[in-house]
Design a protein around this nucleic acid. Sequence first.
DNA 1: GAGTTTGAAACT
DNA 2: CAGTTTCAAACTC
Length: 694
Amino acid sequence: MDKPPKNPTSQIETPTPKSKVEDSPVFNYISNLSPIEPVKSISNTQTFSSLSFTSPPPVFTSPHPNSHKESRFFRCHNFVDRSKPLESLEGTDFKEEVVVSGIEDLNKEASLEDEEETSIETSSELPQILKSESQTPDHSDSPCTEDVLVEALFDPPRGDGDSGLSSEDVKMLVVREENDTPDCGRLISDANELLVFRSPNDSEAFRCLVDKISSSERRFCAGVKSTKQLDINKDNPANGSSNEHEPLAILPNESVFNLHRGGMRRRCLDFEMPGRRKKDVADDDQQSVCDNKAAGESSSRCVVPGIGLHLNAVAMSSKDSTNINVIHDYSISGEIQKSFSGSTTPIHSQDAVQETSDQAENEPVEEVPKALVFPELNLGSLKKKMRVSEQGGEGESCKRCNCKKSKCLKLYCECFAAGVYCIEPCSCVDCFNKPIHEETVLATRKQIESRNPLAFAPKVIRSADSIMEAGDDASKTPASARHKRGCNCKKSNCLKKYCECYQGGVGCSINCRCEGCKNAFGRKEGSLLVIMESKQEEDQETYEKRTAKIQHNIEVSKEVEQNPSSDQPSTPLPPYRHLVIHQPFLSKNRLPPTQFFLGTGSSSFRKPDTDLTQSRNEKKPLETATEDKTEIMPEILINSSSIANIKAISPNSKRVSPPHLGSSESGSILGKRSHGRKLILRSIPAFPSLNQNQ
DNA sequence: GAGTTTGAAACT
DNA sequence: CAGTTTCAAACTC
């Protein structure tokens, strides 16, 4: 707030940039190619801004988390935008979107699973909204379906409880949309991609990550909101005089996205977690939203399991992974619909019902869920959190801190680090990380960001590649993700949560300075190589199996699609799906499969700016990747076997992930990698990074 | 629940 | 940039 160091401009610029961007030939080109619209550019800026909260540029810099998701989101939103110009958004439509988005956010935070489930359940409303949107003439294009799908998936919340929509409804929607749009296939694929991205990032961390920031912002915003309504640019969704939508409404689409994702979730989480935060008085609005949603839907959303605020991956990783998985299933492109109709929906729905049983979800999904969940993570830290939070699902999601001396204004504080306000459950002393001290929080945040622009970025970045990775092991491999900076473990051998890599469910990478690394998710050193080698061995052995499995899964999925009635628990969602889903997050303890090497988009971490751009770029590619998914898996496997070849291999240039084996994350390498990887961009030729435009 | 261990974050 | 200190989570008992 005080002074936006560098980036502040980005926020401010957001408005202007749009025009510029739009005008630019590149923009036009892009817009033509992809569903992305001008809004997108805006969104980007906003999103970042949102991330940074009101002003913090640094946040923007931290690209990863958000960026991935954002880019995708943009699309979705974009689509919305398309249908409705920003202005229109302001109108009623806007509310709808907002609501949806808000829901999404919540879901994301909570957990992808919930999202999906909720989406299904709650979808009743959503569908309508979606429909309306989809109906919009603009959408005739593929985007519509995509958006719709995406939203549907994410939407969750609203209300519902609902009920009503069950997997069938969702299916209907999907189908309907598909029918509507000729390009359904593409759309679907896109949607899948989008979904995929979200999920991971979710990290992500995407989802998270990013999400974290956004969420954090949201919280902050909540606090701020009272103070600032005007700051549209900033993000402050907070304005929210009244309900959710207001703040959101204020924000441009992008902001909305961000808000939805991040802010909404966090708030919800916050509230939820504790049983509801009291703190966020300001958040009341938000709460109302959450509550509404939660209440309506059942707290499930909010509760959502666990999702933690933390965006970063850690907390999320475990559970989220499950969620993500689910999403992925849906997401899986073309097949998504199938999946919906097929096992997935029912599964999810079931899960949703159980909500709490995120893990349970897995059942239907098959392996993924269980595998995904980090055993340790959940057990360990979650334990505490769980305890504190108490509640069900929520508990975990929200992180609580126990700061005694830092006043929750340093990165020592998990809440602060996650970009969220401390809430009741926190046991912190002299906490300044509250809406009441918004200014202080923001100022502090800026300071920290000034020192390290990526300070608030998700620690664990999960690249799309991760998805790819999956493999049979998918459940196992978390690898795709990498820790931003790497760990420095000396005594824990990277086998305990002391290790951020391990905690995040990712393997150690070159960036790590750990000693005696035994990270179950992947060792460093040679780890990459080692892993690869080991993997190669496995791969050779398993590769065939995996590929067979994948194919089998595909077939199954198809069958399932054909026979929707039969849920396939296992769901055959194509293995990839599972894999992808699984992988992104923590896959079980296992390892890290080869993928890391690839790219793991995460790699980008180190260099913030570059990373950002890269990451963004990567993200895009990721989207494109969806197509490849089916192939990707195999490719991945292949890669694992012969990473070196990868680059050369990528024929279409689709995946050019440079195998930086070692590089997995290394910053310098990262940059390269990202480039390589991202390539794919099918729809998008080469996006100039939107952010960059900013 | 208290105390210890650990490693990130912050500081010098 | 390296070394040290501070801090809070993770872990152990």
